[in-house]
């Protein structure tokens, strides 16, 4: 990719890459745009329109509901724990997989992919079976007065499990393609392992890491299935934003439901905005290293 980027300015060829007529291209582009509008843009607009159906006053009123505020707070807390944890562990796992040879590497790779391939409901159920009152560790936990299921620790655990692959999956292919020669060069120049990691490995993957963290964050805030199983839906205590939206919707409180939904959408849009801002701020550096996402 680096090579092709660098040589792009030279590749001014007069011929077109395709032989389709202008009409065919226009139709194909129109279909793509219509599809995007219907599937991506329209739902987003609907969420905001529904939220504003009874005006700004009602919207802000539903935000001041203590249960809604508690749900927002809980979602932010869970993301604030799960995302840094997965960023650090995902980075460590990718580093080990991409830069070293060891037995059981393929098993580790499969395990990292597991949360993507199993249903989130099962991810949640696993924790109920482990830590629930009737679960393996249940009696011991009850005896020591530790609550995991139907409490914040369970929600954090379920979110961590479901969102684990995002950072690692983003980093492993990139790190593997970069190889180990820059690290070897750093070691030969007398750098310690930690210095090499901080000054060579990490800067080389920082954009992929950022991208992985943003995806992980979006999913951590939006996770429904696994969290729904372990949360117990206790209002004001163990309801995250997605769960709270469902409850409000089921109670026919459409404005309330869409108000929280619009807030969740705003958080997602903020995440994307943060990514774009960072890319814009460091565009010089990105161009210099010719690596883009």
């Amino acid at each position: 990719m680096a090579m092709s980027d660098r040589f792009l300015p030279l590749a001014h060829t007069p011929e077109r890459a395709t032989s389709e007529t202008a009409l065919t291209r226009a139709v194909l582009i129109a279909i793509a745009l219509l599809f995007l509008a219907a599937v991506l843009f329209l739902p987003l607009v609907t969420v905001f329109m529904e939220a504003l159906r009874k005006g700004w006053g009602t919207l802000f009123e539903s935000f001041s509901d203590p249960d809604t505020l508690a749900a927002v707070r809980l979602t932010l807390i869970v993301a604030a724990i799960a995302v840094p944890f997965n960023a650090i562990v995902g980075l460590a796992a990718s580093w080990a997989i991409a830069k070293f040879e060891f037995k059981g590497k393929n098993l580790l790779l499969t395990l990292i992919d597991l949360p993507f391939s199993i249903s989130p409901v099962i991810s949640g159920l696993v924790f109920v079976l482990l830590f629930g009152a009737q679960g393996w560790l249940g009696p011991w936990l009850v005896a020591h007065d530790i609550q995991i299921i139907f409490a914040v620790p369970g929600i954090v655990l379920a979110t961590v499990l479901v969102t684990f692959p995002f950072v690692a999956r983003e980093l492993i292919p990139l790190m593997q393609s970069q190889g180990t020669s820059e690290e070897e060069a750093a070691l030969m120049l007398g750098a310690s392992g930690w210095y090499t990691f901080l000054h060579v490995t990490l800067p080389n993957v920082k954009w992929a890491l950022l991208y992985g963290v943003l995806l992980c964050n979006a999913r951590a805030m939006g996770e429904f299935g696994a969290v729904s199983v372990v949360s117990g839906h206790i209002r004001g205590l163990t309801n995250t934003m997605p769960l709270h939206i469902e409850i409000l919707y089921n109670e026919y409180n459409f404005v309330g439901a869409f108000a929280v939904a619009s807030l969740l959408a705003c958080l997602a849009l903020l995440t994307l905005l943060a990514k774009s801002l960072l890319e814009w701020r460091f565009s010089d550096e990105l161009a210099a290293t010719a690596r883009r996402h």
């Binding site: 680096a2 020669s181 820059e182 070897e184 060069a185 750093a186 030969m188 120049l189 007398g190 750098a191 310690s192 210095y195 000054h199 060579v200 800067p203 080389n204 550096e285 210099a288 290293t289 690596r291």
Partner: peptide
């Protein structure tokens, strides 16, 4: 580190994200 061997790699293995100056200074700063 104690071996102090200057090694030039086949594909040079320069640090892509660093300037020429920082590349050459790396061994001293480390």
């Amino acid at each position: 580190r104690e071996r102090r061997i200057g090694f030039v790699f086949q594909q040079y293995a320069l640090f892509k994200h660093m300037t020429v100056f920082d590349n050459i200074a790396f061994g001293l700063r480390a």
